[in-house]
Nucleic acid binder design. Structure first.
Length: 290
DNA sequence: CGCCAGGCTGTAA
DNA sequence: TTACAGCATGGC
């Protein structure tokens, strides 16, 4: 068992909040540990105050995975400075969100794990998404019958669509199968995307079946740590449209487009807009314990 | 039963 | 370019 004691620049940190903030699915709590997989690692990790205990992965990888080197006070300071260019008064909505979200981090998920997860997320809810991934993992994990690891591309792309549908995936089944096929045919695609700029990386991700602007932004934010990525789901849409209505481009009857809302957030919150988005999302959406 | 959920795809204007 | 139906499933 490894241990790590958190000190000032890394505090506050809240493992529970981070895992319950809707950015990762199908990790479960057992005996006080969060258990799940990350790429080829199988991990157990828990927090007692300032102490992190874990097994299953080297220390530098854990620090990176949990985003422990993100300086949150510097990040929120940068966001506040960006907000100040837009208004004189304080942003009470954002301030309340970072207070409620003290200790929240954006994880560095494995890109494939994250991609599969968010293809499954389309037009669904968080508990259902977790169930889906868990079923897929048991059926298409690296080893036969291994619910402890994400489904792998080569087993997914050769599967019967009906078998994928049997994992409660519905119409997302062909997307999963075809996207898996793209990765098998081009194993370095997800690696190359890491080296592209935000716009090119997003366009590349959106060529994958089942990946639109929102799913692409989730993968960019939660796997590739592009903090300028702002996933706009129905929750964020409501929060931004009601909380920042006077600052949005004149909504002359028409609904704001995805890009209207996302680029407003980038302008308003600045280079860490993705983090701001996650604080706002989490302030309305803490995943209940199973 | 109806409505909603970390939406995407295809088609029509 | 925008608008909109259709899509599977589970929770409430």
């Amino acid at each position: 068992m490894h241990t790590l004691t958190l000190d000032v620049p890394r505090l506050p940190f809240d493992l529970d909040l981070t895992f319950r903030s809707g950015q990762i699915f199908c990790w479960e709590q057992q005996d006080g540990f969060w258990c799940g997989s990350h790429g080829s690692y199988r991990i157990r990790v828990k927090q007692d105050g300032n102490r992190i205990s874990w097994e299953g992965m080297p220390r530098p990888d854990l620090i990176r995975f949990l985003g422990l080197d993100d300086d949150i006070s510097a990040i929120t300071g940068d966001i506040r400075a960006s907000i100040r260019a837009f208004r004189e008064d304080q942003d009470d909505l954002f301030e309340a969100a970072i207070q409620a979200g003290a200790g929240l981090r954006i994880l560095r998920q494995d890109p494939w794990d994250c991609l599969v997860s968010f293809i499954c997320s389309a037009n669904s809810n968080i508990p259902t998404i977790g169930k889906r991934i868990s079923l897929l993992s048991g059926r298409f994990g690296p080893l036969p019958h291994s619910p402890s690891s994400y489904p792998v591309p080569d087993r997914l792309c050769t599967a019967d669509e009906a078998a994928i549908r049997a994992c409660c995936t519905g119409y997302r089944a062909p997307y999963l199968k075809e996207t898996a096929g793209r990765i098998v045919a081009d194993p370095f695609l997800l690696g190359r995307i890491r080296d592209l700029g935000y716009v090119d990386a997003k366009r590349e991700l959106m060529t994958l079946p089942g990946v639109g602007p929102k799913v692409a932004d989730c993968v960019l934010l939660f796997a590739y740590t592009r903090f300028e990525a702002v996933p706009v789901d129905t929750w964020i849409r409501t929060i931004v449209e009601t909380g920042y209505s006077s600052l949005l481009p004149a909504g002359s009857g028409k609904k704001h487009s995805y890009e209207d809302l996302a680029s407003f957030c980038r302008n308003y919150f600045g280079r860490y807009a993705g983090y701001a988005q996650q604080f706002l999302f989490t302030s309305r959406n803490i995943v209940p314990l199973a």
